[in-house]
Amino acid sequence: MTATSFHLTRSSPALSLGLVVALGVLLAVVIVSVLYGAADIGAATVWAALFSYDGSTEHLIIRTLRVPRALVAVLVGGSLAVAGAVMQGVTRNPMADPGLLGIEAGAALAVVAAVHFQGISSLAVYTWFALAGAALAAVVVYALGSAGRGGITPLKLTVSGAALTALLSSLTTGILLLDRRTLDEVCFWLAGSVAGRDLGLMLQALPLICVGLLGALLLGRKVTTLSLGEDVARGLGQRTAWVRAAAALVVVLLAGGAVALAGPVGFVGLVIPHAVRFFVGVNYRWILPYSALAGAIFLVLADVAGRLILRPQELPVGVMTALVGGPFFVYLVRWKVRR
């Protein structure tokens, strides 16, 4: 047995170093994201916009469009990836993802309904409706998935999630068909986009996402144990009901916060934890922080790609993640799901 083997609580130098490297990569892609856009703005101007702001149009673009956009992508990507990882660990279901299980659709429907029925037009109140919608959808999908004999199984949970997503999305579409004004307001948001978010909205979602991330990291070790199965975890002295409740709260905060910011962005929570597991193994103490960074990197890159592919047009980032996530989903169904 070598000293570099990592296990329950000993930290591995290689994995710690990897986190620092990932942080560096994240910084690099954020810089790329701020540099590239519809308007050609040189690196020197970007630097000046950040550190000696003069109010010119170019500086304004950097400060109010590009920087918030990159930061939103960081927050949303990190949140969704961590939410997905927590869900996969707690439910022992490789297909768990806030998008696939209907939690993002719940948040989205709540926001659209709020805009339609209450005539709420400021993005700022999205957050609270998104959270409530996410929580409600989480409760419903869990109840549906565990109804009937045999308790909660990956297959039942996935099917319930798909059904719930379909139902909620068609309700959302229904509202939008009835009401063009709502459609105009939320159209781009609904496709999942990190563009045009102001700092105010970000500041509102930020504390929720931070609490969610912190909670997730604290839960890491417990999620690893719970991923051995309910009976084993309880036999080891874990109060699994509490861990599950805390995990659900974390997922709702992260997924709700992410949807409030960017609309429903699919597949990040599905793809990233699997990719991360490939490199760091099955210990959630490592999976969670790596997922946060990798999710952020992935979404920033997806957003940059969405801007470049059809220039000068832009593809919403949700479309980009679906392009990557769809094939990956098929791969998972084909190879990874054991019933």
Binding site: M1, L8, T224, L228, L236, G281, V282
Partner: peptide, 21 residues
């Protein structure tokens, strides 16, 4: 019992120490 895919024997056995932490 079913272990998560990829979990090593050592990591599994280390989980036995859970109640002491």
């Amino acid at each position: 019992p079913v272990a998560p895919e990829g979990l090593t024997v050592r990591d599994l056995v280390a989980q036995g120490r859970y109640p002491y932490h």
